[in-house]
């Protein structure tokens, strides 16, 4: 089943003359990992950042088409491009979490980082916060490393730990979808391995979309892969199919490293 359906979607940045995304049609399947691949500048981040409408922090961007998000409560799809009110955006962003390329710990303690979104939601009860934080840190495979220094500043963690902290912070809100924009490109191979393992485990609870430049990562990790080129979606299919037997010549050239 599709958690999200992107339909005839185009996107133009405020100051740009041409659209950065053209007529994209793509499903994001529930409890699966969808990888977005393609050469630099093809629009992967632009697409990902449309899914939680983080673009709207900057005025003047233009959306066209539809991005439908499944709502488990009502059992219906709603078009997130129609959202206008601030509380609707807040609600969307809590349902659709995002992890960035560089770890982004907030300048506060480890505990407060993970509790951040919970507190925004009005959870004040100390023991509830503690259980939820522990749960999230365990979910992000970080609990054992930080349980003795929850009050320490998050800035003191290693890059890989910081990235897992950011995942824990997002997971704590129990989002339905998690968006990852090259989450390991700033990390060493060991930390990268830990994050990949974590992402693979997370998919039983959440739906995942991940942008990556690393072909091995995409093939190891994802169930579905979308190949983008110059703002267009060239090919979308099961990951094995894309990597073993793509329909398009362009896709094959890209994954075999002939350009990009």
């Amino acid at each position: 089943m599709n958690m999200m359906e992107i339909k005839n979607f185009s996107f133009t940045y405020a100051k740009a003359s041409k659209p950065s995304l053209k007529n994209i049609n793509l499903p994001i399947k529930k409890n699966q990992i969808t990888a977005l691949i393609g050469p630099s500048g093809c629009g992967k981040s632009t697409l990902l950042r449309s899914l939680n409408r983080i673009h709207d922090l900057y005025p003047g961007n233009k959306y066209e088409g539809e991005i439908l998000l499944y709502n488990p409560q009502t059992n219906e799809y709603e078009n997130i491009l129609e959202l206008k009110k601030e509380n609707e955006f807040i609600n969307l962003r809590q349902r659709v979490g995002m992890i960035f390329q560089k770890p982004t710990p907030f300048p506060m303690s480890i505990f407060d980082n993970v509790a951040y979104g919970l507190r925004l939601n009005g959870i004040k009860n100390k023991s509830e916060l503690e259980t939820r934080v522990e749960e999230a840190l365990k979910g992000a495979a970080l609990w054992n490393e930080v349980k003795d220094r929850l009050k320490a500043s998050a800035m003191g963690l290693s890059g890989g730990q910081q990235q897992r902290l950011c995942i824990a912070r997002a997971v704590a809100l129990k989002p339905e979808i998690l968006l990852f924009d090259e989450p390991t490109s700033a990390l060493d191979p060991i930390s990268t391995g830990a994050i990949e393992q974590l992402v693979a485990e997370l998919k039983k609870d959440v739906t995942i979309a991940i942008v990556t430049h690393n072909m091995q990562q995409a093939s190891r990790l994802s169930d579905y892969t979308a190949f983008m080129y110059m703002g267009e979606l060239i090919e979308y299919n099961k990951t094995e199919k894309i990597f073993l037997n793509p329909d398009e010549k362009l896709t094959e050239d890209y994954i075999t490293g002939r350009f990009g």
Partner: peptide, 21 residues
């Protein structure tokens, strides 16, 4: 910017981003 964006991405309001980040 990413730091601010990641607070917004958690559903923080502008004031919360300013105050907390």
């Amino acid at each position: 910017n990413v730091l601010k964006e990641s607070a917004y991405a958690m559903g923080a309001t502008k004031f919360e981003v300013i105050k907390d980040v």
